[in-house]
Design a protein around this nucleic acid. Structure first.
Lengths: 344, 344
DNA sequence: CCCAATAATTTACGCGCGTAAATTTTTTGA
DNA sequence: TCAAAAAATTTACGCGCGTAAATTATTGGG
């Protein structure tokens, strides 16, 4: 910080002894100017710590360096985790991530898209809320801004979708559960928010039939995103009613399983795979807290590193290509891995 | 969407039959124009869905409508929750919240402040990371931009601090635990990240001495933000070593308690307050997951609604006042409430 | 050493809007 | 009805930067 105040690029160009257009070029890409020029600018940068006004920059650039990221609910550690991974990848690529959470509400999701629109991002990554989502508005948005979907798919929306292969992952854990004990019943919400829930339900039925077992759906009521609460409340009910079709329960996701485990504990039901346990519970997702439940939760992990990486790569390559839409929409599902713990 | 394309405010003013400066005035404050004018503009707005370019707006306004929000770690549902509450309040006040997570890293925290600087926010709310924080840089930032601290205090930094009264809340639960059973030992990390941890340690010692009991600190090693993991690993160790100074353990925070509960379960130790239990465990914070642990966790809730509300109010009133600094720095601590559950 | 290639400079315009001053129109109240 | 107050309009400038075209300076290779 020297004496003279640097108010804008003009001033900064003056003190660095370089013309303003060249300085502008430098900030767009430091490698695009001659080494001696770069050094002069960087020397001045150390003395005056000037930074271009991002509002002026973004107003004039053909395209901003912003990439939007919308997740259904940041209060869910699963999405918090994947958001963090994606943010890191975006930063590493020299872009500026803008994070939005829809807090479980479709209105908020649309409102987030409106915010994003006004930010004029180079691209957007969205994990749509799902069933409640106003799909047409999301589709409309995706037709205006290069958009990649992840976690939950909307047919033909966006330039690509990356998610988990529910058929494979559910098949995996159904196989395991059948192999190691009674075939599981499927514990899920009657009217799930997330479209993956429907896929998992069907995957469960298919897997059971493939193995020659009768599928049993335990469909509980409940609204909103408090899955643990719902799993606890409704789980407690079905456990005390004593009419379980099986001593093994596969939950549609880990958060329901966490609630159910808690309900089992409250009711004095021993869960696990050892001899004195009377119930086995398994989940799906490998939620960050699943390893600390009592007992720890057997589940299937989603490859969200792959989902994050491929989503960002896809978006970046599209930006680089300069095109608005790729030749073809890509849809890639990643496989889950069995995570064997104490509960089943 | 009529035929003519609206590219800017000029175009929009034309189709709405109002002059551009008046339209500009409308967008700054719809109430500041005559009713008939407002109706004309809003009619045009419905047909053409124009929105001012935020980059141009922010470049020209004396002050942006942005309010920054920096939390230590969004992967922690506690911070995710308070962030959501604060975001809501900011939106309701007509400002635009920008959310940043430091992901537990002080470098990221500083980098977030740099991002915020370039966004030129009207004000910023920060929950500093704490011990590892580069306090001088945070202080420097707070001297440039109106800043309110919450959750963790840094002496004399920012215009105000809102947090929890650890003396009161720890006193509350120590009282309860002593009243209902053996006086607790205090389970904490040897080198905590969060400054609140130090306050809670001291509050514990004070409370124990006040009641005429000998304080016992169980200080475990471990780095980073995986508190559950650390609590589980180190908790397992102390539980198997069988040298607990008390059958009651008060944890510095719920996340450690969740790990410890899990370790107790793994080791077949019954936790709770009923006759056949051999260990009592309590936490602090009322973490979203604490009601689903086995048994559910007795803890102290922080009044984070109050923290969020007062933080935002303070920031808004400073903005309205037009001043950069208030007469005096405010420091308000809110009381916690005992949340009695199964574990103690 | 000179010429071609490369890079920097000069000059100029435009982005979309906030905002101020002077002027004209509309509203208000007695 | 009429003057004063309030609101809208016209005109004009500036914000800080990207970017393009024409020009000048620098570099590197033979």
């Amino acid at each position: 910080m020297s004496g003279t105040k640097i108010k804008n690029m003009e001033d900064f160009a003056a003190v660095s002894g370089i013309s303003r257009p060249t300085v502008s070029k430098y900030f767009n890409d430091p490698e695009s100017v001659r080494k001696s020029t770069r050094q002069k600018i960087e020397a001045a940068l150390k003395k005056h710590n000037y930074r271009p006004n991002i509002y002026a920059v973004n107003q004039n650039r053909r395209m901003t360096k912003n990439i939007g990221l919308v997740v259904p609910n940041l209060a869910d550690p699963f999405f918090a985790g994947i958001a963090r991974t994606i943010e890191g990848l975006i930063v590493k690529a020299g872009y500026n991530p803008l994070l939005f959470s829809s807090h479980g509400g479709p209105e908020q999701e649309i409102s987030n898209l409106d915010s994003l629109r006004s930010i004029k991002p180079a691209a957007v990554l969205i994990a749509p809320i799902g069933r409640m989502s106003q799909d047409d508005k999301v589709a409309q948005f995706a037709s205006e801004v290069p958009t990649v979907l992840f976690d939950a798919n909307l047919e033909d929306v966006g330039i690509a979708f990356f998610g988990s292969d529910n058929d494979q992952s559910i098949g995996l854990i159904v196989d395991y559960l059948c192999r190691s004990g009674e075939p599981p019943a499927f514990f899920e919400m009657k009217t799930p928010i997330n479209p993956n829930a429907f896929k998992r339900r069907n995957a469960y039925i298919t897997a059971m039939e493939r193995l020659g077992h009768q599928p049993h759906l335990i469909q509980i009521s409940g609204q909103g995103w408090n899955f643990e609460e719902i799993g606890f409340r409704e789980g407690g009910r079905i456990l005390t009613e004593q009419r379980l079709p099986s001593n093994t329960i596969l939950c549609s996701n880990d958060r329901l399983a966490i609630g159910l485990l808690s309900a089992a504990f409250e009711n004095g039901i021993k869960v696990g795979r050892d001899a004195n346990a009377t119930l086995r519970i398994a989940g799906h997702d490998d939620h960050p807290f699943s390893q600390f439940t009592c007992p720890s939760l057997t589940t299937v992990s989603q490859d969200y590193d792959a989902i994050a990486t491929r989503s960002v790569e896809t978006v970046l390559s599209l930006i680089d290509s300069g095109e608005k839409q790729p030749k073809q929409r890509e849809e890639t599902l990643f496989e889950g891995k069995l995570v064997m713990r104490g509960s089943a």
